[in-house]
Design a binder for these strands. Structure first.
Lengths: 235, 235
DNA sequence: ACATAGACTGAACAAGCGTTTAGCATGCTG
DNA sequence: CAGCATGCTAAACGCTTGTTCAGTCTATGT
């Protein structure tokens, strides 16, 4: 049998180790790490199953390597978002939301998007670490925007940052379903433009109008002590 | 070996078939259908593995039965939401958002919540069906609220309904992570109150203030034809 | 009392899994 | 040239999986 190393003339110095990692990333993202077998990964990378174990020790070792690689990619995206100047964010010169950053960094079917999806919903502690970091980033942005007078001050800034973050992550997590409903995937350029337009409108002017001062004439809130909501979230 | 049927005096007429289904629902939701083995399910239901197959034909048959059961539970919740009168929604007499409905219907660690999570992120077409139905429901509510003058009219009502729906689903999907960040799971009563307060504030008054009429003095939007955003979504 | 049906089980099966082992080819180093 | 590490493979190992099978127990209808 021939030596398979450097078999692809387009990528001459790509090692078999990297090829295996990429194949694993794609298959892990698509079917989940448990459903993707070592034999499948080996076949996708055009190597023998034994070579996968030779390079990564075990399937868990490969999993860890892929996790680390994906985390690095997310960190890179994070750094780009973090490094952006506030003025650029406000004027629209840089991706302003996490969802937008995803849409520009990774195309709609990117393995990394699928990987993030799995990471956030598998209960993997790495997912919580990621959310915590992104929340801290969002919180910092909200604080700066409040100081700049661009954001309405919130009594519960942490909850507001979480709300905004959750909204962005929802786009990434639910992109295929939202695409099926709206006709175009919000992670594509066109779909993202439509989504951002609506999100901007709501975040600037709200979605509902404040009720007139005083209680709703049809019901007296004080007669129902079990609920003390201020107006609800009528979705 | 004793006949294990009706072994639980608290639930005397619960059939082994139902016990198996419930055990499967819990394990499917917790670990995923692939990771939960027939032997595990049988052990949880305190029956032999063969009985699982005897009642459901195959593991796929069991999966289908559990899917159907979960879909029925979701439909029941949907019907309750749909049947609520508009006045009740506005006055806070009924759960007003999907997230609130989830928090009241299912407690934070409920198998059905975990099941929904898996359903929406596994690429299962049943997930898209569910999203489509909930979007239609949300769209109807938005339309009625606009007619009642409670919701600000939107140029793109479908996108607005999707935005509101995504926000609610995000709470359900990301609940554990948000709980880790905020200190309390938003699907618990306390966490939900905090979340709804912030969401109500944003949905009523917005999160950001509209920029003054005219362009940002630091940059002229017309000089950059590649981006035509109205103001961005600075999260 | 007897027969039939259904709930239920222990043991075994084939298939697929991650992993190990022994060995081949290649290229560098002395 | 010999020695050795490295990239790589075919074949097999033990284990777990979903599934099947033959048979036991316990009701119920006649």
């Amino acid at each position: 049998m021939l030596n398979m190393r450097s078999v692809d003339p387009a990528d001459p110095d790509r090692t078999a180790r990297a090829t295996i990692r990429d194949a694993a990333l794609a298959l892990f993202a698509e079917r989940g790490p448990d459903a993707a077998t070592v034999r499948d990964i080996a076949a996708a990378a055009e190597v023998s199953p034994a070579l996968v174990l030779h390079h990564y020790g075990s399937k868990d070792g490969l999993r860890a390597a892929v996790d680390e690689y994906a985390a690095g990619a997310f960190d890179a995206m994070l750094a780009q978002l973090e490094g952006g100047d506030l003025a650029d964010v406000l004027s629209g010169g840089e991706p302003a939301s996490l969802a937008e950053a995803f849409a520009t960094e990774f195309r709609a079917g990117s393995p990394l998007v699928l990987y993030l999806r799995r990471l956030l919903l598998s209960g993997d502690p790495a997912g919580t670490v990621l959310v915590r970091r992104w929340h801290a980033l969002t919180l910092g942005v909200v604080e700066r925007l409040e100081e700049a007078g661009v954001a309405r001050p919130s009594r519960d800034r942490e909850a507001r940052a979480a709300l905004l973050l959750a909204g962005d992550l929802a786009v990434v997590l639910l992109a295929p379903h939202l695409g099926a409903v709206l006709g175009e995937n919000p992670l594509t350029p066109g779909g993202m433009a439509r989504w951002t337009a609506e999100a901007t409108d709501v975040y600037l002017h709200g979605a509902f109008v404040a009720p007139p001062e005083g209680a709703d004439p049809t019901t007296d809130p004080t007669t129902d002590p079990s609920t003390d909501r201020t107006g609800g979230d009528p979705t």
